[in-house]
Write a protein that binds this DNA or RNA. Structure first.
Lengths: 328, 328
DNA sequence: CTCGGAAATGATATCGATACCATAGTTCGT
DNA sequence: ACGAACTATGGTATCGATATCATTTCCGAG
């Protein structure tokens, strides 16, 4: 920066101003400085800048996983929103473990991010304390927790599970099953199941028919095997709600293998509206989640808070949408 | 840090040592310092640390997109490798534009990362100059470029396209088509097509039959529509190689709609081995790419170089694998 | 008991920017 | 023509750690 200043015949602070608040510098001085920046190929050091200004212009995000197309679009939406507003994304993946989430939070905080985005779920007490001590905006994305830590951007898994089950009821189905299964420590499947069970009870449709075998790692395989188990146990089942589209894919394959007609004999509903679910693919009836929008909203919440926007919203419910296709 | 030092009755530099090189501090002093750290909930400031030590312990990655399950696993593999070795990941998404890649490189470099991971492809001249000036390890992932900028971890799209086409030939197919289409600025589809064309020529099978309509945004829809176009134009086609599994999914759906028996009448091969391609899903014959491994390898290349490992490998070819399933 | 050398610890300068306050130059109203 | 109120620019301290070199402590051989 000194080199640039010398070449432009100004002081370092003026160079800094040209880069950060150009409108405060006289146009011709500005041009001279910018020319010097170009000529020297000067790249400012944000590490030093952050230390000095006490704002890092980075936001950390900690997600369970990027694979399986679950959080990828959320992270992408977040990254883009941040970028548009001059911020950067620091990413960590916790692999569905609350312990490693705690670890990641600690290292993320040591970068002094201006905000933190977490996938909602269990956080250890220590993690919560660290977050509180850090005093930065925190957004939980995906499921909106009953008692958010700070802010939240997402939807209600319970409501979504309830809605899709109600949809199946409305289309005339009466013996509705559920297949899914949750990762340990991941309560999403559980919440969707809860919505399903509630809807059944509300419609007076008897006991839930649920299979949630978590011994199988692949979601698709789990869908296939669990459908088999479910149909063996309750052969008259006329609809199933699958905890994710991947599970639904496995179920659809198994149904075809067994010669069960979909949707005539069995309606299949998924969750997530993954790429393969569309009309030109599986034609799967499913629940569409605003993946990208949740990330973008999280970014906005953090940046608005940072700017000190008054009377701020803390919870953004982006809802969900039932997409009817051929399978139900 | 001063508070911790005072509480432990040592100087700040000793606190720093306890955190960074514990073995250089006498065990009892170390315990005292660690107790103080705990008691005060002290979280070191890596921004200051980075400025002082001139190493940031972060690695930046710039990928075109996270959606579509293409790069997500690579990023995840990278994040994990870095984490295991005490480094963090700074992520940017360029949305398939070389111009915004350039922009992202500039902002990434201003964080003074210890290394940079890029998806291979076109880089602007300015981008290349910035990278050269930065003097940090750079790894290109996915396709191994003919002239890598610095290091590379990936596989050959051309070879993979050639191999899967050869596989189709070996299984008795003679009139093999290609459907795909590339994003502008993304040469992956083009390279795969090149391998396909080479294999055809080597087998003496006449001219390529390719449809690559890029007007359609969704890959799945593109697969469906392009298969339709291809079969209309060359009705006797007995196999197709799709530039990605998503395209193959669309093609499979369209084939079913038209009553074309797969694989009897038409063999379908995809690319990528996405989640839905497996035996419990589509049962798609495809090319498996070492997504996670490429990320992990990229991380290792950077960290090894940082450690100054001598006689280093610069190119890691992780190959690919043809997975035969029911569709071909 | 003494001395050499290793182990443990500390004092101070420094990394590269920005905050804060001061100063010089400019505009304009009366 | 003069001072008020801006605008444009600069000097210096500072952010919170670590590098470097200096100093002290400790240990065992002779």
């Amino acid at each position: 920066m000194q080199d640039v200043a010398r070449l432009a015949g100004v002081s370092t602070i003026t160079v800094s101003r040209v880069l950060r608040q150009p409108e405060k510098v006289k146009p011709e001085t500005r041009d001279r400085v910018q020319a010097a920046v170009q000529a020297l190929g000067y790249v400012p050091d944000l590490i030093a800048g952050s230390l000095s200004s006490r704002e890092s212009r980075q936001v950390a995000a900690i997600v369970s996983t990027l694979a399986g197309s679950i959080f990828a679009s959320t992270v992408e939406g977040l990254a883009q929103t941040l970028r548009e507003q001059g911020h950067q994304l620091l990413l960590g993946t916790s692999e569905y473990s609350a312990a490693s989430e705690e670890q990641l939070i600690a290292t993320a905080l040591s970068r002094r991010p201006d905000g933190l985005v977490l996938t909602s779920g269990d956080h250890t007490p220590r993690a919560r304390r660290m977050l509180a001590d850090a005093g930065i905006p925190v957004v939980e994305v995906w499921d909106i927790p009953e008692a958010p830590f700070d802010m939240a951007a997402g939807f209600s898994n319970v409501e979504a599970g309830r809605a899709i089950t109600q949809f199946l009821v409305e289309t005339g189905r009466r013996r509705i099953g559920f297949i899914g299964g949750q990762h340990e420590g991941d309560q999403r499947g559980r919440l969707r199941h809860q919505g399903y069970a509630t809807a059944l009870k509300e419609a007076g449709l008897g006991e839930p028919r649920s299979i949630a075998d978590s011994t199988i790692v692949s979601m698709v395989e789990r869908g296939a095997r669990n459908l088999a188990m479910l149909m063996d146990r309750w052969p008259d089942t006329d609809a199933i709600f699958c905890a994710s589209d991947s599970v639904a894919l496995g179920a659809l394959s198994e149904a075809r293998r067994r010669g069960i007609a979909v949707p005539e004999r069995l309606a299949v509903a998924g969750f997530g509206d993954f790429e393969f679910a569309g009309d030109f693919g599986l034609g799967l009836t499913t629940v569409r989640i605003p993946g990208r929008a949740m990330g973008a909203a999280a970014g906005r919440l953090i940046l608005d808070r940072k700017r000190g926007a008054p009377g701020m919203v803390k919870i953004v419910d982006l809802g969900f949408e039932i997409v009817r296709r051929g399978s139900a």
